[in-house]
């Protein structure tokens, strides 16, 4: 008989676990706090939705409004804000829909898929924010750098190309730092789940 088949008999004959819980223990357990990652996915995802927008909300309104006024950016910023609100609501709806599908009764592969899909929603939301920040940044730079007020303040013989390069360089650097930081957290958090999903996907 195959070694593993013999071990099946050992397995079947195994005595009860040395750790044993009573009905009372189990009754108490169901009222305890879950340590499931689903809770953490929700908390971290809410923070990721809220924090980029808190930055906008808590920026200095009067000075920002003055800048927009001086450079004729009021209408553009209004359009960006409307687009942003619509997109956020869309992402929140998608996130909620995917989050509700996370349930421990489906197959192992489906659960892994649903968790990863939920996190992907947030990942695309972050990418959207970075892209919008880049678009708005370039738009604002273009308007400001081409305005008379700005050009008049510049020392003579200043290269506009250098100004663009420096502005875009610093902006891109901060966006890149944010992206790296986010990828590290995201990668670390989901590494085990992604590996398990890949294991199940293999040879399908």
């Amino acid at each position: 008989m195959d070694q593993l088949e013999k071990l099946k008999n050992v397995w079947k004959d195994q005595s009860e676990s040395t750790i044993k819980f009573t009905e009372s223990d189990i009754y108490n357990m169901v009222h305890q706090r879950s340590s499931s990652i689903v809770k953490w996915i929700l908390i971290i995802s809410i923070l990721e939705f809220v924090l980029p927008n808190l930055f906008i909300l808590f920026s200095d309104f009067e000075s920002t409004k003055t800048v927009y006024q001086n450079y004729g950016l009021n209408d553009s910023m209004l359009v960006y804000t409307i687009i942003h609100v619509i997109v956020i609501l869309g992402f929140i709806y998608l996130f909620y829909k995917n989050y509700k599908n996370i349930n421990a009764e489906c197959s192992v592969k489906d659960l892994l898929h649903n968790i990863l899909k939920t996190r992907k929603t947030v990942k695309y939301y972050i990418y959207y924010n970075l892209t919008m920040a880049a678009i708005i940044g370039i738009h604002v730079f273009y308007i400001v750098f081409n305005s008379e007020q700005f050009i008049n303040k510049l020392p003579t013989n200043t290269s506009m190309v250098m100004i663009w390069l420096v502005a875009i360089g610093i902006f891109a650097f901060f966006l890149f730092l944010f992206w790296c930081f986010y990828r590290i957290i995201y990668g670390f958090f989901l590494k085990k789940l992604k590996n398990n999903y890949a294991e199940l996907q293999e040879a399908e």
Binding site: S15, T18, K20, F21, T22, M29, R33, I37, V108, N196
Partner: peptide, 27 residues
């Protein structure tokens, strides 16, 4: 099914202590 899903995907180690009313040593 639920046990595997918990062990493979959902479980995060926590520092809580589990109180029980009766634990016995089979050995």
């Amino acid at each position: 099914r639920v046990a595997f899903n918990t062990a493979i995907s959902l479980y995060r180690k926590s520092k809580r202590s589990i109180e029980t009313t009766q634990i016995y040593d089979n050995l």
